[in-house]
Design a protein around this nucleic acid. Structure first.
Length: 183
DNA sequence: CCCTGATTCGC
DNA sequence: GCGAATCAGG
């Protein structure tokens, strides 16, 4: 399907309302991916949504020459099946946290505080299980706990999948947004 | 891993 | 103009 006036109008509306590209893609049924949405948004020059002020001057784009598209083009783009696939892949997540800069920052601070609390409350490790720097191996979680200057300082030391620096627990907490809302 | 938008460039 | 692949980041 192509970008009809109606679809473009809806795109603009939803984009301005702060919906994510993937959400908009799902709303615009018709075999549209979030990439398509983002691409269109750029062409329409709608990138900046509700940006209050200063926007970081983007200066990163060292794209040498990537081996574009493999080959196989079983022409199935824009078909019903493609649409169904795209829709079914939705995760119904994200939140319209986008808005005033102040609000966004508050949310971030809140998140940090929650993480910190969880770390202290849920990750207390019995003295007999604590490990020191010298006892770390490729298979121990290296998540630091406590004040490095204190004798209380130790590492998590739980088992971590090889190749990963942290145990599953810390690996997950490290990033994952706990606040994710649904609409 | 999940996700977000940004960018490039073959089509 | 379009959007997949890719990048960069949370």
């Amino acid at each position: 399907m192509s970008w009809t006036d109606e679809r473009v109008a809806l795109l603009k509306k939803l984009w301005m309302e702060g919906l994510s590209a993937s959400q908009i893609a799902a709303e615009l049924s018709g075999g549209v991916t979030r990439n398509a949405v983002i691409g269109k948004v750029h062409r329409l020059k709608l990138s900046a949504r509700a940006k209050p002020a200063s926007v970081a001057p983007r200066a990163k784009a060292p794209r040498p020459a990537a081996p574009r598209r493999p080959s196989a083009s079983s022409g199935s783009r824009g078909t019903a099946s493609a649409a169904a696939s795209a829709v079914s892949q939705r995760r119904t997540t994200m939140a319209p946290t986008m808005g005033a800069t102040a609000l966004k920052m508050d949310a971030e601070l809140e998140t940090e505080m929650v993480v910190e609390t969880n770390t202290k409350a849920e990750l207390f490790i019995p003295v007999e299980e604590r490990i020191s720097l010298l006892e770390l191996t490729e298979k121990t979680c290296k998540w630091p706990i406590g004040d490095p200057m204190s004798s209380e300082f130790h590492f998590c030391g739980r088992e971590s999948d090889e190749g990963k620096p942290y145990c599953e627990f810390h690996s997950r907490r490290a990033y994952h947004q706990i606040d994710r809302k649904k609409r």
